[in-house]
Design a protein around this nucleic acid. Structure first.
Lengths: 199, 199
DNA sequence: GTCTATAAATGGATAGAC
DNA sequence: GTCTATCCATTTATAGAC
């Protein structure tokens, strides 16, 4: 057990410090209203350290984007593994997103509510990202198994997750005063009533 | 009929020219990636003219915002006047929004898909704007008349319009290849199945 | 690796001629 | 009212000491 074995553990607290500060600032004021100097001050590090860990302002945003999207994908994978069928998976997915919104509003704001294409050059758009594809797959599977009515997959995904995503947006904007997770079942049952296969 | 009677008609073509160019640039590249110089070039007017009609870059965005929101409000009023009941009004509303998305994508992008609070200082957020309130009223009225199931009004609005708004977003991002209006009835019938009162 | 001080560039806004 | 040329502040990024 050498000293270098600890390298990964302590690694770079500064890097995480910078990312934390950047996420909070980007989420609250927006990417363009946040100067690299704001991040520097908020993270309580020096200018030089920022450029030691990141190529620049955009690179910080990209690192956040990749990191948070990976976390989100892990969440989707967890939900689909632990639940069977579209109905259960969809509900669990929405509950997880609602809980994440309450626990980590900055993260959800950055992932769901930001216009990444404005600051991450040639980013294909978040809807074609892995976690979003996998959410769509939940509904597509439901169609293949006869659980969900046959329709265009984009339409199906919009019907299934549009209401929940809208609630998250409204909650983050301060319009909805109550915690989201409480309304999961009510929302999902009504959503499901619209898309379930008629038999 | 004096010459000054024509003042309103001709008025200021430059002003409209500037607004048009700004809307297109703001919608395609985003507000912050658009310099006042970009607008000047694109509108083919001089710097001085811009500052003759507007106080600055933000004022242009605010003028657009107010103008487009008023148009949108007129649209909502028209739909509610010409249709009776939540079911018909909701469907007509969504069809109108879908048609608007195809006809004026820049407008819809600017109104629905931009984060105004990042560049319009102390703007209360678009969800508390008149047209959005009136859309919510459509559903609230439905609840009062027993057409729509009783629930929180934000939840009801999200269930009613969340799927449609999501489809618009996906369409504007180039994910949905087909024109939206075609899927109006299919979308609305499934949406309605979820929120209609059980009797 | 971390810091401060500074360079280089961008872009919003203005001055003043016509 | 419209134009060009210019100013000035902000901000990204770097140089070089420690």
């Amino acid at each position: 057990m050498t000293v270098s074995a600890n390298k990964k553990k302590r690694a770079t607290p500064l890097r995480a410090q910078i990312l934390d500060a950047a996420l909070h600032l980007y989420s609250s004021k927006g990417y363009f209203n946040t100067s690299i100097h704001d991040i520097q001050r908020s993270a309580d590090v020096a200018m030089g350290s920022i450029y030691n860990y990141f190529a620049g302002k955009e690179a910080i945003a990209r690192a956040l984007y990749d990191d948070l999207l990976a976390q989100m994908e892990a969440l989707v994978d967890d939900v689909t593994a632990k639940n069977q069928g579209s109905y259960a998976q969809g509900r669990a997915m929405i509950r997880a997103l609602f809980e994440l919104t309450e626990a980590e509003p900055d993260m959800v704001r950055f992932i769901l509510n930001a216009r990444h294409r404005e600051f991450l050059i040639d980013e294909p758009g978040i809807c074609s990202s892995k976690p979003f594809e996998k959410m769509r797959d939940i509904v597509i599977n439901g169609m293949q198994h006869g659980e969900v009515r046959q329709m265009d997959s984009w339409l199906a995904a919009s019907l299934a997750f549009g209401p929940a995503l809208r609630m998250i947006s409204l909650r983050l904007d301060g319009m909805v005063p109550t915690a989201l997770p409480d309304s999961t079942d009510e929302l999902w049952d009504m959503t499901w009533a619209g898309i379930k296969a008629i038999r």
